[in-house]
């Protein structure tokens, strides 16, 4: 996989057939309607003392509900954008040279990063929200392995995108 950031901030990535099929399959997992109910990121992580005013202040309660609704709308809009990208990228795939090409303007790069991160979060929750640093490869059951792989692949593609956005020598 090779990629570069263009002067206008957009990115251009080329993938070989295997990378492309992995990337394509990965994005196929994105379905915000499936997991919006269990993706409450507004709750502090267990173990950190929460601000109890959240539950008692009506202004904050309204704001928290509004944020939740907005987030759900945002994820549905991203889903539509993703469908459009996939059609466009599939059209551009060069079967003869076995190369897939992605071109995204700056604002859409953010969308792709959010989708990849959403997938990581979703599959992390499916795994029971474990501390990934404490887990070894033998700890996972066969049923859990697909989620572990999705998380790993999303992290890989996220890191590649971030390296393109922030080249090491910049």
């Amino acid at each position: 996989m090779t990629g570069k950031k263009l002067k206008d901030g957009s990115i251009h990535i080329e993938m070989n057939a295997k990378e492309w099929s992995l990337f394509r399959a990965l994005l196929g997992y994105y379905d915000p309607q499936l997991s919006s109910a269990n993706s409450d990121v507004s709750c502090p992580i267990v173990g950190i003392e929460a601000d109890t005013s959240i539950g008692t202040d009506p202004i904050l309660e309204d704001a928290t509900q509004w944020l939740s609704d907005m987030k759900e709308d945002h994820e549905k809009a991203l889903h539509k954008r993703l469908a459009r990208w996939l059609v466009k990228w599939d059209e551009r795939k060069d079967e003869a040279q076995d190369v897939g090409t992605i071109e995204l303007p700056p604002e859409e790069v953010e969308g792709l990063l959010q989708i990849l991160n959403y997938l990581r979060m979703k599959h992390w929750r499916l795994l029971g929200s474990p501390d990934m640093n404490l887990k070894k490869s033998d700890d996972w059951s066969e049923e859990q392995l697909p989620s572990v792989h999705v998380m790993g692949l999303c992290a890989l593609f996220q890191s590649i995108l971030l390296q393109i956005l922030y080249p090491p020598n910049s």
Partner: peptide, 11 residues
């Protein structure tokens, strides 16, 4: 939250 960071509002 759109980026899935764990962000909260507090007075």
């Amino acid at each position: 939250q759109c980026y899935h960071l764990n962000a909260t509002l507090h007075r």
